[in-house]
Design a protein around this nucleic acid. Structure first.
Lengths: 136, 136
DNA sequence: CAGAATCCCCACGGATACTG
DNA sequence: CAGTATCCGTGGGGATTCTG
């Protein structure tokens, strides 16, 4: 009962947090969270400005994403009781720290984009095979 | 023509690589890539061991994931012409570098899991409201 | 053993319309 | 302006079956 620990899984690296880590990966993997976070990284923005600054995002997705960020303590929502209403979103320190972490990954992507592209090209030329000769 | 640059998008941060960055985020956001990479991080493994080491993964997903990794130059596939067949997968340097980058993110997750959980709990207690009084 | 092929479900997310 | 509610298409990915 003491020794084993099931071994060899990636789970051994992060025993109990693994579920939460997956959750984070899912979130940063979704289509908008990272975009919204990095947009808010430049400073507080109101809903409409946010929508304008993240080209292609729908109201639905912007709202959903913002709610998740707020819920997780990554961003704050401040509503001013005026008319017309004004709501401002801003990254928290926690949000900024996540942004930095993601930026590191983005850094990897930028640095290794060329290498990956090269491998893809080579792989295409090498193995994909079947496409050759048998045009049909 | 000089000044504008469309401004305010997250795109301004990573001008042309943005598409590729999304691609990387999508990949690390998918359900298995990170698990497989981190499992291979411990050393070369054959197909069946890999499947055993990543609990819950299906043949289909393991195969698909490995093909992507190979295609992108993140892992290598070595087949031994024996019977029964033996195929060994191993991370490349590129793959290891990605693993490190992802590990940084996992580190963030592990470090801030508690903070996020706390925010969620508080958020639940605070705003969710509606559940109270008006049971129906 | 390693994988390819097929079927199928359902959650992610886009478009649209309505509201405080 | 800042959302909410609804409908619906797409594809990620699980289960199963078959092959070299």
């Amino acid at each position: 009962m003491a020794g084993q620990r099931t071994l060899s899984g990636p789970c051994t690296a992060w025993p109990e947090d693994s579920a939460f880590i997956r959750e984070v990966l899912d979130r940063i993997g979704d289509k908008w969270t990272v975009l919204v976070i990095s947009t808010l990284g430049s400073g507080p923005l109101r809903y409409s400005d946010l929508q304008a600054s993240v080209p292609g995002i729908s109201q639905r997705m912007l709202t959903v994403t913002l709610k998740e960020l707020e819920r997780d303590g990554l961003a704050t929502r401040t509503a001013y009781a005026e008319v017309p209403p004004r709501v401002v979103y801003e990254l928290t320190d926690l949000g900024r720290s996540l942004q930095e972490a993601v930026l590191a990954l983005a850094g990897w992507a930028a640095s290794n984009h060329a290498a990956v592209a090269a491998h893809r090209k080579q792989h295409e030329a090498t193995g994909v095979g079947r496409a050759a000769t048998g045009a049909r």
